[in-house]
């Protein structure tokens, strides 16, 4: 239980996890469901109940596709993707916690890959 972190995450995300009514539409809509350790509705509940340390350790924060389907379809304006990003940002702000290192990139490139792939990956996965 970490109430301070809950507030920090809610503040960074700009949404209120308490507004969630546990309908599960986010999880029904999520295209990355199979890859996610914690599913969007669980994520909201874990933020609300202060289980942020578990989330910070989870690989799941990097599997959100940022497709905004849960934001669009959430009937309560809880917008799980914003909470997921807030936790990811918290994790990445710790020194040495980058999910993607620049030196790893060349090995993953192919000749057709657009620049956009690299800029957005760096923006998403590294401080």
């Amino acid at each position: 239980m970490n109430r301070d972190l809950t507030q920090t995450v809610a503040r960074i995300a700009g949404v209120n996890p308490r507004a969630c009514m546990r309908c599960g539409k986010c999880t029904g809509a999520c295209p990355a469901y199979d890859e996610m350790e914690y599913h969007p509705h669980q994520f909201v509940s874990m933020v609300e109940t202060g289980r942020i340390d578990e989330l910070l350790r989870s690989k799941g924060i990097y599997t959100c596709l940022s497709c905004f389907a849960c934001i669009e379809r959430c009937p309560r304006q809880v917008e799980p993707a914003r909470l997921i990003e807030a936790v990811r940002v918290l994790a990445e702000r710790k020194q040495g916690a980058d999910h993607l290192r620049p030196q790893d990139i060349p090995a993953r490139l192919d000749p057709d890959m657009p620049q956009q792939a690299i800029t957005s990956a760096l923006r998403k996965y590294r401080r």
Partner: peptide, 25 residues
Amino acid sequence: GMVGKVSPEGGKLKVQASDLLDGRQ
């Protein structure tokens, strides 16, 4: 749980939904 997406395809309606008690999509 709730339905997140319905996709008509080949005469069927592909329903993607959450089952919160079972923890499944």
